[in-house]
Simulated scan of single mutants.
Amino acid sequence: MTQAKQDNADERRRRLLKGALATSSVMTLGYGGPLAAASLSCIAKIDGGYPTGTNQFFIGAAPPATPGGGNWAWKMVEVNRYQSNGNGVIDGFEVDGNVYRADNPEVLISAAIPKPNGSGDYPKKAWLLVYFDPDGIEAGTYPTYTVQGEGFTPAVSSCLTSINPGIVANYGFGG
């Protein structure tokens, strides 16, 4: 017959510490893992395109409100006057070193030369839809970047905030 273990203070302390450490590590992994995974895939879960019924370019003092209460990311650009070969003086905006027509944003202005604006109406504020990768990093703006596939989509402010809390201050949000 074996004798029962002596229940002394050292043994009790060891069991208490062992139990506390085991519980702590299980809870940290259990709650932290899914939250991190949800944040990283947030942008990839957005519907895969820009907000329906909304243009990706908008001229106005503030970013446009989007249908359905969406709060999409917009980047401000300035619309100025440009002289173009064969087109005379037209309104345009610059993205990634290219100048695009304000009345048809996907059309490049060839040989665009900035022209003095002349009146108090210029420069005008305009807004471009911003695209992000799944890590919340800006991938590009319309019209040079229009990938609407999973993982590279426009994003709502709550999605960007969950990934990178400081990013929202850099973009205008409609809604």
Rank of each mutant, 00 (worst) to 15 (best):
N87D: 12
G118I: 02
T28V: 14
L21E: 04
G30H: 07
G175H: 02
Y31S: 15
I163G: 01
E11W: 12
I59W: 01
G175Y: 06
Q148N: 15
G60Q: 04
A22T: 14
G136D: 05
Q83V: 09
G19V: 11
R12T: 09
P165E: 01
G97P: 00
G86F: 03
G86N: 04
Y131G: 05
G86Y: 06
G49H: 13
D103Q: 07
S162K: 08
A112V: 03
V26F: 10
A139R: 04
N85M: 09
I59N: 00
A44P: 05
G33A: 14
R14S: 13
T66P: 08
A4G: 11
Q56V: 04
F57W: 01
P63M: 07
P143M: 11
Q56P: 04
C42N: 09
E94V: 08
P143L: 10
T153N: 07
L160S: 05
G166K: 10
G140R: 00
G172H: 03
G69F: 04
D7L: 15
D91E: 12
P34L: 00
A22V: 13
S84M: 07
G69P: 03
G48P: 04
V77E: 00
L129M: 15
K45V: 10
P34S: 01
D10V: 13
G53R: 05
N71I: 05
D10F: 13
L16D: 12
M76W: 01
T52I: 03
F57R: 00
A36S: 10
P143G: 07
V130Y: 11
P114T: 06
P34G: 02
F132G: 10
I137P: 04
I163S: 03
L40W: 07
N80S: 08
T23A: 15
N98R: 07
I90V: 15
D121W: 09
D133I: 04
T2Q: 14
W72H: 07
